[in-house]
């Protein structure tokens, strides 16, 4: 095995891993930025996305359609949840209440998936177009992972441009800075909040659909991925969109290369990274100092 080929393959692996992580972390950080909510249900929504994607593929046979249907379904669930429950709590300003509410939703989602799809994992086939491998420096590399890198990068750039260039993005950034002032200037802040919550849910669901062909859709996928996402959001800085990109890349690289070079410490290494970042910069790499 040649060293350069190994490094390139692992680097690409890390990028594809980062893409999946980014899909869940960026929704988490956007929601935190606007609402100051740590959404524990985000892992559950990611999982629901994967399962809805599975069903879409099972019924229609089209992977591409599932990339559309799953985010819409999950965004609808998120939107209803935000409107009916979360929005009633904004006046209370109580971190514990949000925690309980989203934790409750996470439990309900996990059980709902269990009831609807049953306990066994559901595997989703890689679409024909993306099946197979390409050889990079004598190393075979799955095309699907390259596709993940491409779609992850595209989503990151699109969201970044959306936040920086559009009027909706401007409003989102404004609400995260000073919601009262934006409200006073005549913007429907409640609508912005619902919108951003739905957007975050939709992106998480997209991540779920995309990860299903890699790891299958299984019941525990939400509770394992949410902790990685928390770590990313903390490392990058709570509420910082660019931070979620940087954090995803950092965590993915540490996971992929850590698993190879420090097998003993593979599990511990991202928590050590998080501790290090928090001790040096309590607000995260790109976050504001608290």
């Amino acid at each position: 095995m040649n060293f350069a080929g190994f490094i390139v393959a692992q680097t690409l692996n890390a990028f594809s891993q980062a893409a999946i992580l980014f899909f869940i972390a960026c929704g988490l950080t956007l929601i935190f930025g606007i609402m100051r909510i740590i959404n524990f249900a985000h892992g559950g929504l990611f999982m629901v996305g994967a399962y809805v994607g599975y069903s879409t593929v099972a019924y229609t046979g089209s992977f591409w359609l599932s990339l559309l249907i799953a985010p819409i379904t999950v965004a609808a669930i998120g939107g209803i949840f935000e409107k009916v429950f979360l929005s009633k709590l904004y006046v209370r300003q109580d971190a514990g209440a949000y925690l309980m509410l989203t934790f409750g939703l996470a439990i309900i989602l996990a059980q709902a998936v269990h009831l609807i799809w049953g306990p066994q994992p559901r595997s989703v086939a890689i679409p024909d177009l993306l099946r197979g491998v390409v050889v990079i420096l004598n190393q075979p590399f799955p095309i699907y992972r390259l596709f993940l890198i491409a779609i992850g990068a595209a989503a990151a750039i699109a969201l970044w441009q959306f936040l920086e260039r559009t009027r909706a993005g401007l409003l989102i950034r404004a609400v995260s800075q000073n919601a009262e002032m934006v409200h006073a200037l005549g913007t429907d802040v409640a609508l912005v909040r619902t919108g951003i919550f739905m957007l975050g849910c939709a992106i998480a669901a997209l991540g779920g659909v995309l990860s299903a062909p890699l790891v299958t859709a299984f019941l525990g996928m939400g509770s394992t991925v949410i902790i990685d996402a928390f770590v990313i959001v903390i490392i990058g800085g709570m509420g910082s969109f660019l931070g979620s990109i940087v954090g995803s890349l950092l965590v993915a690289f540490v996971q992929v290369f850590g698993a190879y070079y420090f097998q003993d410490m593979a599990l511990a290494i991202i928590y050590l990274l998080m501790l290090l970042v928090l001790i040096v910069r309590p607000g995260g790499l790109l976050g504001k100092e608290q």
Binding site: F85, K88, L89, A97, M100, L101, F103, G104, L105, A106, I107, I108, A110, Q111, A112, H114, L115
Partner: peptide, 16 residues
């Protein structure tokens, strides 16, 4: 088998 559903609902009811 539905207990997690009931639990989740209890939490939400308590918060609200």
């Amino acid at each position: 088998e539905l207990w997690p559903l009931i639990f989740g609902s209890i939490f939400i009811a308590f918060v609200m």
